[in-house]
Write a protein that binds this DNA or RNA. Structure first.
Lengths: 347, 347
DNA sequence: ATTTAGCACTCGCCTCAAAGGAGTGCTAAC
DNA sequence: GTTAGCACTCCTTTGAGGCGAGTGCTAAAT
């Protein structure tokens, strides 16, 4: 791939991203000063097409970047954009103001990302597993229904309702709560050791059944308020994209986005390392989003990946801008989350 | 409005609701056995149009019901449908299985309503004000950040993060929690009396500042997990309606539905009495949903309206079916919610 | 007096063909 | 290696004509 071919490919991608129209040789010669005539560009385009980087919707339309073309662009051609300082300031100030609990920060970040990119933003909320237990309590509702409430140091809360045996009273629950608190406080959910559990079991042997159910509830992510949930913002942004002026497409996509498990599947393709993952069209291996791309990254808390931030848009996406925004957002998010939890900033 | 006119109007509405096509005199004569010829029906239709019950999209199309026509139908013509017993069984069993916490029941109801009606369902979650306080606790996060956790007897949880003065320690919080629990347990949030507050203030005079902030948090609905939130289900159902095959309309509607305050505004038009409210097109006085209707009803808990259930669909809606479903759903919901809270069933 | 058949008329929608235009590939000249 | 020229392709737009559904009116039938 010689230098000029790269320039042509870049021009095609830039123009197509901007206009959503197949781009022809004349356009490139006119708008992007390569110092050569349309004919020359046509030759280069023929080569690029043979190499698989661009495609022709039909004879005598312009060229459109292929998945391979976008991939090459993202990997080799794309220049990272610098987040403008005033924008940076806005984001920082917004986060600063929201530094109260994890939920608020996440919400804010999602909305911001949707607004700035004008694509859809997904935020997978951190689960319980990252943070440390601050408080744990069994609260009687209408017996035999009780709820297990767990407060993490991030401010995240989990509650899980279940039923206990008839002969358990409020006092029993209060005793159990005290012991659980003493033993489990400061631990991560993932880090609860068998030794601790058996200690508890020993101490509260007559409540074995309640304890089992409580532990089950603790490690069950379902009941967790917010945590593990996926928030969607700016879903309607995609309706502004010309590729979704077709109602059928909108329908399949929206139907998809309403199913949380599908979203989880999509997000799970994110590499955990901390770098930004870009997946283009069929790379997501989900045939319903073949005309979409996803840019995603994990964010960290206490040295551990706890959640994912992602932007979903058409394959014809402003990758450079989105990648830098995601990068910036996750970095900030990690920073503020850690500050929230411990003053630690070890990202 | 004589009997035959009513029959014609009914036929027009039924046919239009079923087909979404303007309906002509021939169709009515053929499909609905009125025993008269198309010409007669045409005369009746001309009358109905003059009276404002139906409209013509353009000369020589069929007729379409007007807002006034639908209104007349809903008020006078519509026969309540009976919820089929097998469906009733499914709903009851589903609710039975979900009887654990309010959130789950509400979610389930919303999804069910969306699925059964194939329109969009809205659920406004009950706030804190209906239920009784079961447990209240100030949990230290990373000091000076603390969170106030309130568990209601419905299983609803509220948490609100705020900051306290530097010199407040964990022991102080634990003392405050004990007192708050002793004093406030069993009360409704709305029912906390000034006498109780001053008792608490007396007992914990050195913590006045923390207490003020806690009380503020308690009566602030924002931080409440789930409560007061509006859940939307089956939003994509409306995309199946032919009137929304136009992307622009979809866009305005979806944009609308994403704004929670707008939804609240729409829901606030529901009459609290306990009957079902039907609002048709412009009756909602929001120009973005002029082509939509909303069927809604409040549900009760402990003798108080605590939330709203609603279905949003095109004006061309199967009112009879939706109304009976909503009626049935709210009745059941009230029943199960009350059973959840107190075994009371005083609706 | 009401109902109905007949008929002319309106108007949206579909089809089809023609025109237009954007873009290409090839060839030959530079 | 580059470029101008040109024939060719194929999508898109445009407009006219025909079709069909439906109406309102009138006059005849009940």
């Amino acid at each position: 791939m010689d230098d000029r071919k790269q320039k042509v490919l870049l021009a095609i991608i830039q123009d197509y991203v901007a206009t959503a129209e197949p781009v022809g040789s004349r356009t490139i010669a006119r708008k992007y000063q390569l110092g050569v005539s349309p004919a020359t560009i046509r030759n280069e385009m023929a080569d690029l097409e043979e190499m698989g980087y661009i495609e022709q919707p039909h004879t005598s339309a312009g060229r459109v970047p292929s998945i391979v073309g976008y991939r090459y662009y993202v990997d080799s051609l794309m220049k990272k954009e610098i987040v403008p300082p005033d924008l940076e300031k806005i984001i920082r100030e917004g986060l600063e103001r929201k530094v109260r609990d994890v939920g608020e920060i996440m919400h804010y970040t999602g909305q911001l990302l949707a607004k700035l990119t004008s694509y859809a933003a997904l935020v997978m909320m951190p689960g319980l597993f990252g943070g440390h237990i601050r408080h744990i309590q069994l609260v009687p509702l209408v017996l035999p229904r009780v709820t297990l409430v767990v407060v993490m140091d991030s401010g995240t809360i989990k509650n899980h309702v279940f039923e206990v045996e008839e002969d358990i009273g409020e006092d029993d629950l209060s005793v159990i709560s005290t012991v659980l608190n003493a033993k489990l406080r400061g631990m991560t959910v993932a880090g609860i050791r068998r030794t601790v559990l058996s200690e508890i079991n020993l101490e509260l042997s007559r409540y074995r059944d309640v304890l089992n159910r409580a532990m089950e509830a603790l490690s069950d992510d379902r009941g967790t308020v917010e945590a593990g949930k996926i928030h969607l913002d700016g879903m309607f942004n995609i309706l502004n994209q010309p590729e979704f002026h077709n109602v059928e497409k909108v329908k399949t996509l929206l139907t998809l986005l309403e199913q949380e498990d599908v979203l989880k599947g999509l997000l799970s393709g994110t590499v955990p390392a901390g770098s930004v993952t870009v997946r283009i069209g069929s790379e997501m291996s989900c045939r319903f989003v073949e005309e979409c791309s996803m840019v995603s990254a994990t964010f960290r808390m206490g040295g551990q990946d706890v959640g994912i931030l992602a932007v979903l848009g058409p394959t014809r996406m402003e990758y450079a801008r989105v990648v830098s925004l995601i990068e910036f957002a996750t970095r900030n998010l990690s920073l503020y989350l850690n500050r929230l939890v411990q003053g630690r900033e070890d990202w």
